[in-house]
């Protein structure tokens, strides 16, 4: 029977092939969708590290995503940093913010953690909505993408930018896969399954959770930074509870604790949103119902189905 990790990596490669095939075949609009999928996949995978592996279900993860976008805009527009530097700065801002929020949030369990993360996200949203320095509810526009004219390609070309975003998604997947396979990642799963036992073994549980929270915040900020460059525009909309909720839906629909599930879920989500919003104004209604259904019936989402195939094959081999 193939190991869980190999199966997961295989699924990831299949997803990448699907992304590349659609990239080749896509028109202008297709590239825009692919960019959105790649960015959402990065954001959702960072949430999966928290929710799926460590068992910390955050409803305020959009705070770090939005912060990454705002930091990119602020560094790029106000301090006139180069787009690459702004992106790096945004990741640092996301990490620091997650470190601060996490320093007390990770001590909370289950439902308390949900409530507090939701409140943090909304508080930050409310602040940015009113802040004059950051454009209030109008947001800021004119964020630049990296200038790569010296090597003869332009990031302003949607085809190029979508490929860059897919590349980032692959990098983040590889990074997170390394993290969850490392002893550190195993410990996170152990904390999820039985925190008191891990504590009894002498591990500082809160510190490990804080490390995961910080890493997830930094990656979410990277996704936010890419969004800011993609749209050349940011607004408080990026930090609303619906953004956090959509990411959580992606992770749960994709399958908690599988990383590739989050990426596949991102694809399903963006395409479903794109098609549903063309048909009805009330797509959130259907998305909400779908979400309740997945929570209620299909425990492990899309990846749960894929993994069931692996177990079936394994069963047949024995």
């Amino acid at each position: 029977m193939m190991s869980r990790e190999t199966w997961r990596a295989g699924t990831a490669i299949l997803l990448l092939v699907a992304a590349l095939v659609s990239w080749v075949r896509a028109d202008y609009f297709g590239h825009e969708l692919l960019t959105q999928i790649a960015i959402l996949a990065i954001f959702a995978m960072s949430l999966d590290l928290l929710a799926g592996f460590t068992g910390m279900i955050s409803l305020g993860h959009a705070a770090f995503y939005g912060l990454g976008a705002y930091a990119t805009a602020a560094f790029n527009l106000m301090l006139e940093w180069s787009p690459w530097a702004a992106m790096a700065g945004a990741v640092v801002v996301g990490a620091v913010a997650a470190l601060i929020v996490g320093s007390f949030a990770v001590r909370l369990s289950g439902v308390f953690f949900i409530m507090v993360t939701l409140a943090v996200g909304e508080a930050l949203h409310a602040y940015l909505f009113k802040s004059r320095a950051f454009g209030g509810d109008d947001g800021l526009s004119g964020i630049a993408r990296p200038d790569t004219s010296s090597i003869g390609i332009s990031f302003d070309d949607p085809a190029v930018f979508s490929l860059v975003c897919v590349g980032f998604a692959c990098l983040i997947y590889a990074l997170l896969e390394l993290v969850v396979r490392s002893p550190f990642g195993r410990l996170l799963v152990a904390i999820h399954l039985n925190p008191s036992r891990v504590r009894a073994l002498g591990c500082p549980v809160s510190r490990y959770k804080l490390a995961a929270f910080t890493l997830a915040g930094a990656i979410a900020a990277l996704a936010g930074s890419l969004t800011a460059q993609h749209n050349a525009f940011i607004s408080p909309e990026l930090l609303t509870w619906t953004t956090s909720g959509e990411a959580l839906i992606v992770v749960i629909v994709g399958g908690l604790g599988s990383l590739v599930g989050a990426a596949a879920g991102a694809g399903v989500m963006v395409l479903a949103m794109h098609h549903l919003s063309g048909v009805t104004d009330y797509w959130m209604f259907f998305m909400g119902l779908f979400f309740v259904g997945v929570v209620l019936f299909a425990g492990n989402g899309i990846y749960g189905v894929i993994d069931a195939v692996r177990r079936r094959l394994g069963g047949a081999a024995h």
Binding site: I57, I114, W241, G245, L248, M284, G288, V292, L296
Partner: peptide, 10 residues
């Protein structure tokens, strides 16, 4: 809790 969260959208 998650199910009630989905209901917010609905």
């Amino acid at each position: 809790v998650l199910a009630t969260f989905g209901l917010i959208f609905v």
